[in-house]
Design a protein around this nucleic acid. Sequence first.
DNA 1: TCCCGCCGTGAAAGCGATTACGTCTTGGTC
DNA 2: GACCAAGACGTAATCGCTTTCACGGCGGGA
Lengths: 352, 352
Amino acid sequence: MGELGDPTPAPRVRKRVASIQDVAERASVSIATVSRAVNKPHLVSVETAERVRIAIEELGYRPNRFAQVLMTQRSGLLGVALPDIHGEFYSEILRGADAEARRLGFQILVSASPAHPGEGEEAGGGLGPALGLVDGLAIMVTEPDERLLDTLRNLDVPLVVLDAHLGLGSDVVFVDQEPGSREAMRHLLELTPPQDCFFVGGPQSNFDAQARAKVFDEELRRAGHAPRPDQVTFREYSMSWGERWAHETLGVRGLRRIAVFAGNDDIAIGIMREAQALGLIVPRDLRVIGFDGSTLAGLVRPGVSTVRVPRDDLGRCAVRALVARVQNPDDDVVSLRLPTSLLLRESSGPHE
Amino acid sequence: MGELGDPTPAPRVRKRVASIQDVAERASVSIATVSRAVNKPHLVSVETAERVRIAIEELGYRPNRFAQVLMTQRSGLLGVALPDIHGEFYSEILRGADAEARRLGFQILVSASPAHPGEGEEAGGGLGPALGLVDGLAIMVTEPDERLLDTLRNLDVPLVVLDAHLGLGSDVVFVDQEPGSREAMRHLLELTPPQDCFFVGGPQSNFDAQARAKVFDEELRRAGHAPRPDQVTFREYSMSWGERWAHETLGVRGLRRIAVFAGNDDIAIGIMREAQALGLIVPRDLRVIGFDGSTLAGLVRPGVSTVRVPRDDLGRCAVRALVARVQNPDDDVVSLRLPTSLLLRESSGPHE
DNA sequence: TCCCGCCGTGAAAGCGATTACGTCTTGGTC
DNA sequence: GACCAAGACGTAATCGCTTTCACGGCGGGA
């Protein structure tokens, strides 16, 4: 039961600082007038306003936000819960979110929710007790998680879901994996027969990974080939997984002239590096397309073709939607789709 | 004066949710007892505690954090103000800070302070009105800024300064540029005469840039050469600045067999890319060492030697120091130094 | 038997703001 | 000259919680 309590009991810390009372006395008015002078200046006479202004100045008064918030029930804080805050991907979502929030007069409370909140931990998207401090929550959920869903259902603040359709009636902002993925696959299939195409994905439980794999599957069938099990693998979003896969496939199995649709750029780069280490030439022996449009993909040699994801738009739109809902709870629920598109570089070979 | 007001006046939003009152009634006790049952369970009888527990459960009660915070004057929020939240550098500081905060039961409020807060904007390190919500502030300041200093002096919460000595009597956590820089310079000077060494830095006003330039200067003199003006340049931390510099120096001026100490890895990589585009061989025609220990530096070919900066330690230690101060305001002021060290790769040539 | 102290509890005083409501001037209208 | 609306301001309720203090009951030592 103690879990409901104060996070860190400790002696008080804040210095004694001027309150609205002090200002009121110094300006010889009531606290109500001070409040009005500050928030609704048109309700007080100019002389009074000036007296109050001076008193505030002299006392260095700043309204106690806690008290304000207790009255107004609005903190100006927005929770943004991401699976992780590390890496270019999340970092840019965050940047977009932060910029937009700032523009709208809000502040962001980030939370890197541990991918699988351990037993005993509250879910709540990782914002522990701070969940109670936000005016709204934007949460990105990449995997199904019943406990989390439950928490989200019981939330008493507006919610925006990023990148997943959870079936709770909240607003949703998502990047549509499909157009980019399909472009990528069609491009690969132009030069490579479907039986030589591979999908090397992230964690299988991951929504995005599934969406990308689905397109892979569809396009192969569309090209008249039902994918073999070895053509689709899942593991994790990392360079080392790419390297391992390449080692296995290009090294051990010795395959050549294949095309790979990688789950993200890290994987793609891992694959390419291993291929190069094996003495292969990209894109001659191996064509590869990544996903995310990371900076890195453009810096390695050869440049890695990739599916561009509007990362900061994602953050930006999420916050915009959230603020809209916070301010207008009764607006219609929106579902915002951000498209992806293929960005061609050398790694996937010639294109015309 | 309106600036003191609510960030976004708007109708109330939160659903009506069970208060401590409701719980008290349902459990047939006073609100005092409910509060005790929740926060100091040892002060109530087990039977009462149980009744309260059940009532809470049934009502789905969660204490109103705003009210709690108003009483206790502790929000469990820590402000972390960085010049930017983008890029690996800040991203990792943030990650360290977040992890540590979470461990200590706090939550982080990030703020990407605009480098130069425009006129009219409050300084406050970018956390606008939210500054009033945090229990403490960790701020990284990279450039001198009187207005900011002033705000910081008048702060009524504990402060920790990152990476700069501002002379306000606050705790400081900083990475010591020197050891790594010195190592780097000595390494360069082993194979390259001082008159052929260059420093290509970030913004001149930047503290770090100055510190690194200082070591460059010292080591050159130590090697018996007073640096010419053209050997030290400042601009910005970006790849394109590196490219421009290299274009100028290697392309236009046509210098060869020079050694560059770059202000950070981005610059170093930019220089290297331009050099390669010019058909030069690194490290034969150009030796270069970067700064930051970024991932990217290890991924390009040839690998870029760099000065490793303990980024997440920086965030972690800052938060640790801040929490310490929040909880023990009267502890001695600490100044924590995090060392840097050289990480050798191919770009700076052979070393033995 | 009496007294003291402890334990469990409730009543009430804040914390620092916002705001509904009421009072008192003023000045304009008829 | 009476009436009324508008303007300026004060009183007090309220937000939801924590915490001090006082009180009643009960058990143990003298």
